[in-house]
């Protein structure tokens, strides 16, 4: 399956799923109102038609999106982002952020970033952000489960 076929199939699948879900939405309560299923159904049909058109389009020459090394690095980044999100939810901003910052600075900066500088930057960014948002701007930050 080439990239056009893959894109087309995925879009058609999303369109079909949206159409099925939209069919089960409640009927309109006001007379002459086309109801809540009308608009998403039009968009879903449009998506299906575009998906089919993309599927049958001839595939030109394409460059790979990332190299194998690039995909490995993308995987690392994705894992870090998910762990940071979980960290924010369970540990809170003040604990999760310096840890995440330390890891991501080391990950991105090797071999240029030094241990001590990384620790200082991680702590400084965390506390400055916390002070500016939570204390000065009164914008709440995740506090974790504590």
């Amino acid at each position: 399956m080439n990239r056009n076929q893959l894109t087309g199939s995925l879009l058609t699948l999303i369109g079909v799923a949206a159409l099925i879900i939209a069919k089960d939405l409640s009927a309109p309560v006001i007379e002459y109102d086309p109801g809540p299923r009308f608009f998403p159904s039009i968009a879903a049909v449009g998506l299906i038609l575009c998906g089919i058109a993309i599927f049958i389009q001839p595939q030109g020459r394409i460059e790979p999106f990332l190299t194998p090394r690039g995909w490995r690095r993308m995987g690392q980044m994705a894992a870090l982002l998910i762990c940071y999100t979980l960290g924010l939810l369970y540990l809170g901003f003040l604990i999760a952020t310096p840890i995440a910052l330390y890891i991501v600075i080391r990950m991105m900066g090797q071999p240029k970033s030094k241990y001590l500088t990384t620790i200082v930057v991680s702590l400084a960014v965390t506390f400055v952000t916390h002070y500016v948002f939570q204390e000065l701007l009164m914008v709440l930050l995740p506090s974790g489960l504590w």
Binding site: T7, L11, I14, G15, A18, L25, S26, P28, V29, I30, D33, G35, P36, F39, P40, I42, A43, A44, G46, L47, C50, G51, A53, I54, Q57
Partner: peptide
């Protein structure tokens, strides 16, 4: 087709949540 599909996807995403009127 890709652009139109992107637009339709946006409309579908915009319809997530409480529908207007009803």
């Amino acid at each position: 087709f890709r652009g139109l599909a992107s637009g339709f996807l946006g409309i579908l995403l915009g319809s997530i949540g409480i529908a207007p009127i009803g």
